[in-house]
């Protein structure tokens, strides 16, 4: 496999007394789809926010293309080539599709090139087989699935090296889910590293090369997707690897602390 593009070592993030992430290691190679799975509050969204510069890690190192880097803000992540599609999409409802796609990276800062931006917008949306009738309508008038498509299209605009998708298919219809999964495969063919956060095992098995399991903010196993069964992944997510009693108590603790982490993240 080709070289590692993004490598995390010992990433820890605490919110006050709550350790949302503890000593997380993660490697993403070029042309690899890494699915990060875990129960609610396992720290998946916190991990996304650290990589995209929304939160700073409390401890640990991030190595990007062989260089150790710090991601202090969203602009740093952009500059490195890490593009993120957030679960809450982070779109401006008062702006139209084109303005949202190019937000912060408009063509022609002092004299906007709206023709070029509209042409590029249509290219991106066609590539995603997006069902958006007009790119000049404000985001407020689009459905959830259409908004998701706009958010994904936006992440591809700046030719990123790593794309992070936080629950990309959660709000999508059947056809759009298939399109997004197809798109993720195309990203892989283009040599991009893809991190996909997902709850949907079918999606994970369909596109992921590697499955990294988080549990209670810690690494709980990294599997090659074609060598692992769905049951094994679920077992790693829930911690159901020992006897039934340990499993049940582990679940209870997981849910309590997990929810706290979810609220803070």
């Amino acid at each position: 496999m080709s070289g590692t593009v993004l490598s995390l070592r010992g990433i820890t993030k605490t919110f006050g007394a709550v350790a949302a992430l503890t000593a997380i290691d993660l490697d993403v190679r070029r042309g690899e789809v890494v699915a990060v799975v875990g129960d609610n509050g396992a720290g998946k969204s916190t991990l996304v926010k650290i990589l995209s510069g929304v939160h700073a890690a409390t401890e640990g190192t991030i190595t990007f293309e062989g260089r150790q880097v710090t991601i202090a803000g969203p602009a740093d992540a952009h500059a490195l080539g890490i593009a993120t599609v957030f679960q809450d999409l982070a779109l401006c409802e008062n702006l139209n599709v084109i303005e949202n796609l190019f937000l912060g990276q408009e063509l022609g800062p002092y004299r906007l090139d709206d023709v070029a931006m509209e042409v590029r917008s249509w290219e991106l949306l066609r590539q995603l087989s997006a069902k958006i009738p007009s790119v000049r309508t404000p985001i407020a008038s689009l459905s959830g699935g259409q908004r998701q498509t706009v958010a994904i299209a936006r992440s591809l605009l700046a030719d990123p090296k790593v794309v992070i998708l936080d629950e990309p298919t959660a709000a999508l219809g059947v056809a759009q889910t298939a399109e997004v999964l197809g798109l993720i495969r195309r990203l892989r063919e283009q040599g991009l590293g893809v991190i996909m956060i997902s709850h949907n095992m079918a999606d994970v098995k369909a596109v992921a090369d590697t499955v990294a399991v988080l549990r209670l903010g810690r690494n709980n196993g990294v599997f090659a997707a074609d060598e692992v069964s769905e049951e094994e992944i679920v077992a790693a997510i829930t911690g159901a690897t020992q006897n039934a009693i340990g499993n049940a108590s582990g679940n209870a603790i997981g849910n309590v602390s997990g929810n706290t982490g979810g609220l803070r993240s």
């Binding site: 969203p74 602009a75 401006c92 912060g104 990276q105």
Partner: peptide, 15 residues
């Protein structure tokens, strides 16, 4: 306009 519409989204877009 972006900051007025959704300041957090604007921040995440690198503004």
């Amino acid at each position: 306009y972006a900051v007025g519409g959704n300041a957090e989204a604007a921040r995440r877009a690198g503004i």
